[in-house]
């Protein structure tokens, strides 16, 4: 069997998702954003909810997420996406509403908004991209930057005496009664991508059940900010980021429900 015989339309097993637009992504080569966008697009397509999904993009590298997934979008002010999502979901309860936020947006300037959206149990999905750095503004320290990690505002490495400690947001919000599903995933290998997709699908399904907020953290790379090749950044993430931000489910109210 030669290549031409294999490459027939009926043999396609994977292709660009239908809801990913033809716009060329502005992200750096190897950036995790593109993979996560793809997974969200696939989940929305597979669930058949394009016409009822409203995405809310943040300020940060993914500010232009609205250019890449073919759904209605709102572009929020820095950190405020959960506030927009709150009103959108409450005013349009039949819609699927998700925010897409980076660590600067969600864990720094937007802490009040995310904590209170979690606390109120808004029936929304939050996709949280945690790469421990500000990408768009040129690689400054984020709340999630690891101790010792060099950034443009911690050029000698993050020193807790000066800069404090990394914030572990997913664990923090797991203590809030309004959260239904909290998981931490990554997208650096094919297996990880499959698991992350299942997690995103579950989050969207949970948002239909009106049981509270679903939160999917994706531990990600920023190879430009980290000053590594994309492949090395993935390795560094596994060796360093995963120690502070271990992969796996943190809370699932439907699974963890205590026996009454």
């Amino acid at each position: 069997m030669d290549t031409a015989e294999i490459m027939r339309p009926e043999n396609i097993v994977y292709r660009k998702p239908a809801l990913i637009t033809d716009n060329v992504m502005h992200y750096c080569p190897g950036c995790s954003h593109g993979v996560v966008h793809k997974l969200i697009a696939e989940v929305i397509d597979e669930m058949g909810i394009q016409d009822s999904t409203i995405g809310i993009s943040p300020v940060g590298c993914s500010v232009f997420a609205y250019n890449y997934i073919d759904i209605d979008w709102q572009e929020a002010a820095h950190g405020r996406a959960p506030a927009l999502a709150t009103a959108t979901k409450r005013l349009c309860p039949d819609k699927h509403v998700f925010t897409y936020q980076g660590d600067g947006d969600l864990a720094s300037i937007g802490t009040a908004e995310i904590i209170h959206a979690c606390s109120r149990g808004e029936n929304i999905v939050v996709i949280f991209i945690n790469n421990g750095i500000y990408g768009m503004t040129g690689g400054q320290m984020a709340p999630t930057t690891l101790i010792g990690m060099k950034t443009s505002t911690t050029p000698y490495g993050r020193d807790p005496k000066i800069n404090g400690f990394p914030m572990v947001i997913a664990d923090m919000i797991s203590h809030l009664d309004g959260t239904a599903y909290i998981t931490r995933q990554s997208v650096h290998t094919a297996a990880a991508v499959r698991k992350a997709k299942s997690a995103i699908r579950k989050a969207f399904e949970y948002s239909e059940k009106n049981i509270g907020l679903s939160f999917v953290e994706i531990v990600s790379t920023c190879n430009s900010g980290w000053k590594m090749s994309p492949v090395d950044a993935n390795k560094w993430m596994v060796e360093n980021m995963f120690k502070k931000y271990p992969i796996g489910d943190i809370k699932d109210v439907l699974k963890d429900a205590p026996a009454l």
Binding site: R80, L84, T86, H116
Partner: peptide, 20 residues
């Protein structure tokens, strides 16, 4: 009707609602 956590959040809730 919702009591928000701050005025910052209130106005951004309005932003989301107005988007719809």
């Amino acid at each position: 009707v919702l009591q928000a956590e701050s005025e910052t959040s209130s106005i951004n809730m309005i932003y989301g609602g107005a988007c719809c």
